[in-house]
Design a protein around this nucleic acid. Sequence first.
DNA 1: CATGAATGAGCTTTCATTCAT
DNA 2: CATGAATGAAAGCTCATTCAT
Lengths: 241, 241, 241, 241
Amino acid sequence: MSTAAKPKRHPVVAASSGVKAGAKSGKAAKPAKPGIREQGAQATRDGILRAATKIFAKHGYDGGSVGQISTAAQSYDRMIYYYFGSKEGLYIEVLEDIYRRMNEAESKLTLDVAEPVEALKAVIRFVLNYYRKHPEFITLLNTENLHKGRHIAKSLRAKDYSSPAIAVIGQILISGTTQKLFRADLQARDVYLLIASMGYFYLSNRYTLSAFLGENLETPDALAHWEAFVMDAVLRTVTAQ
Amino acid sequence: MSTAAKPKRHPVVAASSGVKAGAKSGKAAKPAKPGIREQGAQATRDGILRAATKIFAKHGYDGGSVGQISTAAQSYDRMIYYYFGSKEGLYIEVLEDIYRRMNEAESKLTLDVAEPVEALKAVIRFVLNYYRKHPEFITLLNTENLHKGRHIAKSLRAKDYSSPAIAVIGQILISGTTQKLFRADLQARDVYLLIASMGYFYLSNRYTLSAFLGENLETPDALAHWEAFVMDAVLRTVTAQ
Amino acid sequence: MSTAAKPKRHPVVAASSGVKAGAKSGKAAKPAKPGIREQGAQATRDGILRAATKIFAKHGYDGGSVGQISTAAQSYDRMIYYYFGSKEGLYIEVLEDIYRRMNEAESKLTLDVAEPVEALKAVIRFVLNYYRKHPEFITLLNTENLHKGRHIAKSLRAKDYSSPAIAVIGQILISGTTQKLFRADLQARDVYLLIASMGYFYLSNRYTLSAFLGENLETPDALAHWEAFVMDAVLRTVTAQ
Amino acid sequence: MSTAAKPKRHPVVAASSGVKAGAKSGKAAKPAKPGIREQGAQATRDGILRAATKIFAKHGYDGGSVGQISTAAQSYDRMIYYYFGSKEGLYIEVLEDIYRRMNEAESKLTLDVAEPVEALKAVIRFVLNYYRKHPEFITLLNTENLHKGRHIAKSLRAKDYSSPAIAVIGQILISGTTQKLFRADLQARDVYLLIASMGYFYLSNRYTLSAFLGENLETPDALAHWEAFVMDAVLRTVTAQ
DNA sequence: CATGAATGAGCTTTCATTCAT
DNA sequence: CATGAATGAAAGCTCATTCAT
């Protein structure tokens, strides 16, 4: 960011500063003053939350500043304290939000449990796709784990988000076992973690892995190959015999 | 905690660093003036690098400050710039250092390729164990991925660290295939990523997972269960039929 | 000493600055907390600008620190960034300010063009006097020239200050020429530069000249002698024959 | 300079730092180690003095750092203290040096006093030319005047430099007066100051003047025009009648 | 509700200088 | 003679946060 991220300037008093106020900043200057937008409170709050998700996902908790967020939200630092109490409070809400959104997405996942293999593949596809489409989910979770889950522990709402995905996998496993397709000695949780591991790690660590392996992991081919391998590994793990 | 649990560190650069390690326990506010020239340059440099590894692993790149590091190293901010040029330069050396150390550890792994199943199990045990014993490895890599590998890309030396583990897995796969135990259509890289995924994700995300799943993933039982599951999944994936 | 001799400053931007000026005498280490909101924003801004003019004039751009300025203004470093964006932004406004003030002073100069010799003498007296009364004007301009006009080039407002003095000299020259007193082949710009040269150089370099010539150039006698010589030289230059 | 002016790095200890030592510095790295140059002491001293002249002239006393100078001199900070005692001591020697060099140049000026008009023109040409060829003379003198001659006052040698130019002008004036060409009531000092004023001011303030007047003062035409005007003004000032 | 102003601690980095060989 | 290492103060600037309307 260097000097580009100038703090908001309030040239109200200035009078003499005129055109070249910042002397070297050429920032946005808030096209639409937030106070003028009639939507009011909820819109401001949502805008801040959205901006915060983006900034925290990009720079981490310490790397993202209140000023950056309020600028990105075209609002004011003060509003963050008004609505969220503190930087930490805002961050906690961001975490709750991404959990809630993932839960919602998982809830919408409908599949035919009677076809356990296809259903499992669908789950795998969903998980990998969700991580790919929501990189902020990954970086925010990494950031939270860097802090040893300190913030999520402070959230009262977080406990409400019991993964629907695990329940779904549980149903699939039962169906598969009943049909003698799957092993009977498996926990849905473990299968879920296997899928999540392979999806998450590959994407989360793609930058260091790319440097380490000397190949680009984000090409369509590479992604397709990995998805196939995940399906292969998961199915071989759950299949009977 | 990260590195706090096991301060045993490999004195990679110079044997002299052992001396400073002993003098370092009890991290008050610079009790003994470092100017007394305990060990000279190498000790100072090593001490800073060690402290930086700890601080960056604990607080991330942005969360860890130069002041924290120099204090932990019982040295001065100025020395960081003297030896490493900048905070970023120091961070890059920290990254190089953990890569080099992992490479070294992998190099020391000796196993009997003639027994591919046992050898693979040994690799899995090694990887999981390494991640468990070196939590700083995980958090530093996560931090670096948050920054999209920007720093490791600046390192010229990082390219030298091609994982010996992948080569070892390749030998194991060949041996297993020859013995008709393993499938022939597997890439060592994928098997390595499968193992790394399961080991890394479980530990890296243990705090959010614990909140999410409502159970402690770090108990000896939980860890043993997971290790068994990893072995099961990997072996089922590689085994023929 | 520069500005120390005559703290009388024009409260250009707002009349309110007079208040702060009184409160400013006795520059201890922030005796009265500025947070008590003496006068609000304009006073804070003005105070900083005034302090900056003083400090930059005394120590140059590099020699003057943000901390010195904020202390002298009985404010905080942070406020400088709040109102001026950066040290450089503040410096640019200081430059604009001294230019504007000189322009204003020149504008107020009223003289009888019908008496060109007397009018020219009045201009000379004014210029020499202005430099003598505003040593900060000289040191700030020298500092800016040391930086090759880098800062004034960034100011959009600086272009507005076209010297009224040159226009006045132009009128005097026309009047004098019409009366056959002055030569016809002169440019107002050159005459202006001649006057400015002699006034500026003598004062700007008075310290090294004093050491060099071995005499004090600032005694009333010396100053009077020099003013007479300037008048003599200018008039002999412009006079016909 | 920003981050480009990296402090000297001593990767002696490093061992691990290898190629990308500075991580983002691409500096010169001292082609020829100064210690290896057999010239030894005097050469080192001279190199530092020359580099210091350049750096102080460019950035002023506060703006120029010991590190910049030692780097430019391809030497070490420590050497500055070895040879000059302190930054200030070095600066004083720089001042003495430029005075001495100007004195030397003036001494070499030979002219035919019997032709006072031509001789005076030659002096003017010399002075203007000297300022134009030695911009460091101007900025260093300005810097010293900003500091109120504090440093030159500490110099014991500065007193030795009595301007030969003034003596020469004195002779010219006598010659001219004897020939009834020049006025008899003039001091050589004043004529010298007139010439110096016009030469010095024009060049010293060329950046702010250019912005102020809206024209480039450094074109050959502009310089020639000014030189002609200076000659005109000086000659009209000294000429009898 | 919104916002301008203020606050002090902290950040990374550079400074001139000295120590000890 | 030369130089690597150390040193602490201070630099410019940003931080999260609170005050007062």
